[in-house]
């Protein structure tokens, strides 16, 4: 093998290849079986060095090839990134499939250190567990599940839309796992998301991944136009509807201003039945709000039909 080609192969294997060399080297490898064998042997050495079945430099090499295709911006990436970036950050990979064919608006309480994002109140910023329970409310603006995901500015969902939910629990959490999610709409009515009178609340055992909640809520059924506050918590026991009602009664009159630093669980007070045993198993809370826009179209169905559809 020519010395020049060998040096090119070595640069590919050590992550020091120049962008302009990539295409030529790939062509050479395709044509030259000896070069491929030499390259494979070098890659084996890198694998043995890194004690991995595939070396990091191999993944970097593919990145260089994608740069050469014009898909990635050449030269913007690290030439030899550590392996931690792909493996350690894989904590969220594998978030479960969202049952609702919803799309779009994702709302979540700001994580500690986030600058806040509008309507989301940075509650409990001093609490080291702030943000350990993260809630996403998703909006399918058409309610038909036929639109691709797109960000919606303004923090609203059309009155004809459908809501779906996802939660994520920080890996450091060792406490309660029974989820409750409910809302209070502009009229002060309670919206039972999970549990409902017919659907039990799930246990959220997974950590550091987004977990979809098998629940779709059609806004035309029960939600009035205007602000909706959504409250989520992990509790030691499954919440009852009565407990949710009692909590909503307290929260309906409480402040939700941005500068309110009190987490909603604390606003209920320690003796609240929803928080039973929270002193034994650590409970987490999350809160957000959004707006339901006035409906663009009127549903031709009767309220009873609409209500039935809304419980799917």
């Amino acid at each position: 093998m020519r010395a020049g080609r060998r040096r090119g192969l070595d640069r590919a294997l050590t992550g020091t290849i120049e962008p302009g060399e990539v295409r030529g080297l790939i062509a050479a490898l395709r044509e030259d079986a000896a070069a491929r064998a030499s390259y494979d042997r070098g890659a084996r050495a890198m694998r043995a060095l890194e004690r991995r079945s595939v070396a990091q430099t191999e993944l970097d090499w593919v990145e260089r090839r994608l740069e050469a295709d014009g898909l990635l911006d050449a030269g913007a990436g690290d030439r030899a990134p550590g392996r931690a970036w792909s493996w350690a950050r894989g904590w969220w990979i594998g978030a479960s499939v969202l049952a609702a064919a919803a799309a779009v608006l994702a709302l979540r309480p700001p994580a500690p250190g986030d600058g806040g994002d509008g309507l989301l109140a940075p509650r409990g910023a001093a609490d080291p567990r702030a943000g350990w329970l993260a809630l996403s409310v998703l909006c399918d603006p058409t309610g038909r599940g036929d639109v691709p995901l797109a960000e919606v500015a303004g923090g609203s969902c059309p009155g004809d839309g459908t809501l779906a939910f996802a939660v994520r629990v920080d890996a450091r959490h060792r406490g309660a796992e029974h989820l409750v999610v409910f809302g209070i709409d502009a009229r002060g009515d309670v919206q039972y998301y999970l549990p409902t009178p017919d659907v039990a609340a799930p246990v959220v055992a997974r950590r550091d991944v987004w977990t979809s909640l098998d629940r779709a809520v059609r806004l035309p059924v029960n939600h009035a136009a205007g602000r909706v506050r959504v409250f989520a918590a992990l509790l030691p026991h499954p919440a009852s509807i009565d407990d949710v009602d009692a909590a909503a009664a307290v929260l309906a009159t409480s402040s939700t201003r941005r500068d309110d630093e009190t987490p909603w669980l604390d606003r209920l007070g320690p003796a609240h039945p929803l928080l039973a045993d929270c002193g034994v198993a650590e409970c987490l809370g999350a809160e957000l709000e959004f707006r339901v826009e006035p409906r663009a179209s009127r549903d031709a169905r009767s309220p009873a039909e609409a209500a039935e559809a809304g419980q799917q």
Binding site: L71, L105, A106, G154, G155
Partner: peptide, 26 residues
Amino acid sequence: EPRLESPRSPCGWPTATLRGFRAGDP
């Protein structure tokens, strides 16, 4: 009205990443 935008999309990506991905941002 303040903008409401989640730091992370449901699939786990940062929201800006999802937006950039769909737009083909390198």
